[in-house]
Amino acid sequence: MRTVYVNGDYLPEDQAKVSIFDRGFLFADGVYEVTSVLDGKLIDFAGHAKRLQRSMDELDMTAAIDMDELLEIHRELVRVNDITDGLIYLQVTRGAADRDFLYPAEDTPPTVVLFTQAKPGLADSPMAETGMKVVTIPDRRWGRRDIKTVQLLYPSMGKMEAKAQGADDAWMVEEGAVTEGTSNNAYIVKDGVIVTRHLGEEILHGITRKAVLAFAREAQMKVDERAFTVEEALAADEAFVTSASSFVMPVVSIDGQQIGTGTPGKTVARLREIYLEEMRKAAV
């Protein structure tokens, strides 16, 4: 049985409780982060902590916890749950108050929850060798996708639609252009140039995205941050996604059409290799 963290206490998971009046439960009024663990160390914790603070600031949420303390909580959960490879999920909500569309008083204590998920061999996913298949769906989410909120019903629906079509995931499309995957950022490679959606309110500002693009530029790879169409994606030489849990993952087909050779390409393989090597060095 896992040990989890709830509002200052480390508890067996079957003893963890959150109020039915919690605004995360009633209004999806909460934000979250997922930090990967490799070899017992946290991958890009600082990036996730910074984005968590940004999400809270955008929603005018009270600061939940000191970031140094948050790091120690993460480390303690890794230790007590004996996590070698896996994930740590962190959720912060505006707290518990009687149901009202208006925010509760500013001194309402936020709800802070963390738990671990063991994922043995996280960096050695077979899909990195075979590639993943995606389908496209309309992007029907709210307009502030840059805030990492717990409003994940539509992405969940998208993953179910992909599964029903025999694919692994879905890329969401708005006005003909790809925004992002259901839980990842989306990329194509054409004539040696990596193309991915520019930052804005339309997509999540991925922590893995930021690191991967920095590593790509350091390796003298060309990067073009702009919107790209489904038609461009279908004509690409390679395609891939990035996320905290999948790192850099090749995409080999979109809507049933083969991308490039239909196998993971050299650019994606090199980016995955660089990312894992560099992030392991910087892990805390």
Rank of each mutant, 00 (worst) to 15 (best):
R94M: 12
L90D: 11
S156Q: 07
T261E: 09
P120N: 01
G260W: 07
G121Q: 06
G158W: 05
T84V: 11
R280D: 04
Q165C: 06
F115R: 09
E33K: 02
D14G: 06
Q220H: 15
S55E: 11
G166I: 14
A105P: 07
L153M: 15
A105H: 09
A28G: 15
V92E: 13
N185R: 02
A63R: 14
D146T: 00
E174Q: 13
S125N: 14
D224I: 00
T208P: 01
T208E: 01
P250M: 06
V248Q: 04
A105G: 06
A128I: 14
L71W: 05
R99D: 02
V112C: 09
V248T: 04
L122R: 03
V34E: 09
Q15M: 14
R23E: 13
V268Q: 09
V113S: 10
V6R: 07
L276S: 04
E76H: 15
I43G: 04
M279L: 14
T62N: 05
G262M: 13
H198E: 00
D107T: 10
E278Q: 15
M67H: 10
S55V: 04
D57H: 11
M1I: 10
T108N: 06
Q151D: 15
D191F: 11
E76S: 11
T261L: 07
L271K: 04
I188L: 08
R141K: 08
G95F: 11
I188S: 00
K281P: 04
A49P: 10
E218C: 02
N81M: 11
R280Q: 14
L70F: 10
K210D: 05
A96M: 12
S156H: 08
A105Y: 03
Q220K: 15
D66P: 10
R209S: 00
D107M: 03
T62D: 01
E106L: 10
V134W: 01
V92N: 10
P120Y: 01
K17R: 14
E161H: 13
P110K: 06
S125L: 13
M127W: 10
A239R: 00
G256V: 11
A123N: 08
A227G: 11
Q220R: 14
G24S: 12
I137H: 01
P126E: 11
L204A: 02
A239Y: 01
A236P: 08
L153D: 09
D14S: 12
V230E: 05
G200S: 15
M249H: 02
T84N: 09
E76W: 06
P120F: 01
L102S: 12
L204G: 00
L70H: 07
D169R: 00
D224S: 13
D9A: 13
P12C: 05
Q53L: 14
G200N: 11
G40E: 06
D100P: 03
F240A: 06
Q258P: 08
E231D: 14
L90M: 14
G121I: 07
G262W: 12
G200F: 01
K281C: 04
T182E: 06
R54D: 07
A16G: 10
V37F: 02
L70M: 15
N7D: 15
L102D: 09
Q53N: 11
P138F: 01
L11R: 12
L271C: 09
G131Y: 07
K17G: 04
V223S: 02
D139Y: 02
F240K: 06
D168Y: 03
D124I: 01
M132I: 15
G95H: 10
